Amino acid sequence: MTPAFQFAEVRGAKLAYNSTGKGSPVVWAHGMTSATYTQERAGNFDWRPVSAEHRLIRYDARGHGRSTGGTDPVEYTWPELGKDLLGLLDAVRPPLSPGLDTPHSTSAQKVGAIGSSMGTASILYAALDRPERFSRLVLTTPPTCWETRPAANGMRLGSAQLVQDKGVAALEALSVDAPASPALVDAKRYINPIRVSARRLPAVFRGSAQTDFPPREKLAGLALPVLVMSWTGDGTHPVSSGEALAAALPNAELVVANTPAELATWGDRAAAFLR
C-alpha cells in the first residue's frame, strides 16, 4: 500500500512526498515527466532493497505528479530543481533530525540520494551547493551532457512546441513502444505515462533545454562517494554520459547494465552503497 502523501511548501510550490522504511534517510529524485513511483511501477527500477534498510523519501519534482509549479521554464532548469531538493530536505516531516526545525542548520542529518536523469542532475546541483547535507550519491541513467547536450536540447524544444500546438496526445503518439535499453526488455511497460499537465509540460521541456550538468571543474571538487549507474543502448541516457560523469567526479565508480539480470542488481547495489 502506498503511504499517504504530505506536502512541503518549497520556494513557492507545494512538493508532494512520502516515505517508506526506517533508518538513515535517503531521497529519491525521479526523471523528467515522471513522478514518485512511475519508473518503479514501469519496472525501470526497484528501490525496495533501499527502503528495507533506510527511510526512503520519494517526492514529485516541481510541476510533476501531485506537486504544483508554474509555467516559467526557469523553474525547471536543473540548478533550480536542485534548490527545490534542498528546500524539501529542510521542510520534510518528521524532520530528518529529531527535534530539528531550523533550516540550513549545520547539525542537520546527512542524507543519501538516488536520482534518475533529471533527478540525477538535480542531486548534483544540490550536492554542489550544500555538500555537507549529503552522505553518498547514487546517480542513475545520466542524461546527455556537455558535448552531447546540444542535440538533446533541440529535441526538447521541438517537444515543447509540439505540446503547445497540438497537445500531449500528439507527443505520446510519437513514442515508440520498445525498450530504451536491452536492460529494459523485461520491464512492465516501455512507454511511461506523462505525469505533467499539458499547461506545464512545454515549460518543463524548455527548462531542460536551457540547462546542463555543472562544469567538470566544479564536479572535481565534490568529494562525496558516488555510484554512477548507466544502461546500454539508450540515446537519451547514453553510457558515455555515465562514463564522463564518473570521470569528472573524484570519488566515483561506474556500473553498467546491459541485461535485465544486471539491472535487477541495482536496488541491492544502491542499498549496500548507501549503508
Rank of each mutant, 00 (worst) to 15 (best):
P49E: 11
L89D: 02
N44F: 11
Q39L: 15
D46F: 04
M118W: 11
L89I: 06
G82E: 01
P95S: 11
A42K: 06
H64W: 00
A52K: 06
G99E: 06
T68V: 02
L85H: 08
V92Y: 07
L100G: 09
P79Q: 02
E53S: 12
P98S: 12
H104Y: 14
L96W: 12
V92C: 09
L88Y: 12
S107F: 15
P94N: 15
Q109T: 15
D60H: 06
R58D: 01
Q39F: 11
P79M: 02
G119Q: 12
R66V: 00
L88K: 10
I57P: 00
Q109I: 08
A113Y: 08
S107C: 11
V50I: 10
W47F: 13
P94A: 15
D46P: 10
T77H: 00
R66F: 07
L96N: 10
S117E: 10
L81F: 05
S116Y: 08
S107Q: 13
T102P: 05
P103R: 14
D101Y: 15
R62A: 07
R41G: 02
R41K: 14
P94I: 14
W78D: 00
L100H: 11
H64N: 04
Q39R: 13
P103G: 13
D72W: 05
S117F: 07
D84A: 10
Y76F: 13
Q39M: 15
R66M: 09
R58I: 00
G69A: 08
E53R: 14
L100F: 11
S116K: 03
T102D: 09
D101E: 15
D90M: 06
L56I: 04
P95L: 11
L100M: 15
G119V: 11
G87F: 03
V74N: 10
G119K: 11
S105R: 14
T68C: 01
K83S: 12
V50T: 01
S51D: 10
A108N: 14
L88N: 13
R55V: 03
L96E: 13
G69T: 07
K83P: 00
L86R: 06
P95M: 07
E75N: 00
G70K: 05
T120L: 12
R66K: 13
